[in-house]
C-alpha cells in the first residue's frame, strides 16, 4: 500500500460519490458513476488486489455504466433531486 496515493485517491472517491448523487442530469450522474468505478479500481490496484482491480475495471467502470446509460435513454433523463 502507498499511503499518499491512497489518501489522494480516497478523497477523489468521496468527491466522485457526492457529485454522482447530487447531479440532476441522470446521464451526467451515470458518467460520474463510471468515474467512481474507475477510481475504486485504481484503489484496488494500489492496495495489491490486482484480481479485484481488473474485475472492477470491466464491471464497475464498463458494464454498469453502459447498462445505466441504456436505461436512461429508454426512460427519463431528468431527476427531481
Amino acid at each position: 500500500m502507498i499511503l499518499p496515493l491512497d489518501i489522494i485517491l480516497l478523497i477523489f472517491l468521496v468527491i466522485a460519490a457526492v457529485v454522482a448523487l447530487k447531479l440532476r442530469d441522470l446521464l451526467g450522474a451515470a458518467m460520474v458513476f463510471s468515474t467512481y468505478g474507475f477510481l475504486i479500481c485504481l484503489i484496488w490496484a494500489e492496495m495489491g488486489a490486482v484480481d479485484v482491480a481488473f474485475t472492477e475495471a470491466t464491471v464497475g467502470a464498463g458494464i454498469s455504466g453502459a447498462l445505466m446509460i441504456a436505461t436512461i435513454f429508454k426512460t427519463a433523463r431528468k431527476s427531481s433531486d
Binding site: A20, L21, L26, A29, I40, V52, D81
Partner: peptide, 21 residues
Amino acid sequence: GKNNLIKKLIGLSIFQTAILL
C-alpha cells in the same frame, strides 16, 4: 432519501463498494 429510482440504484452501488473497501 432520494426520490428518483436510478439515483437510489447509484446509491445502492456506492453502498456495496463501501463494503468491498
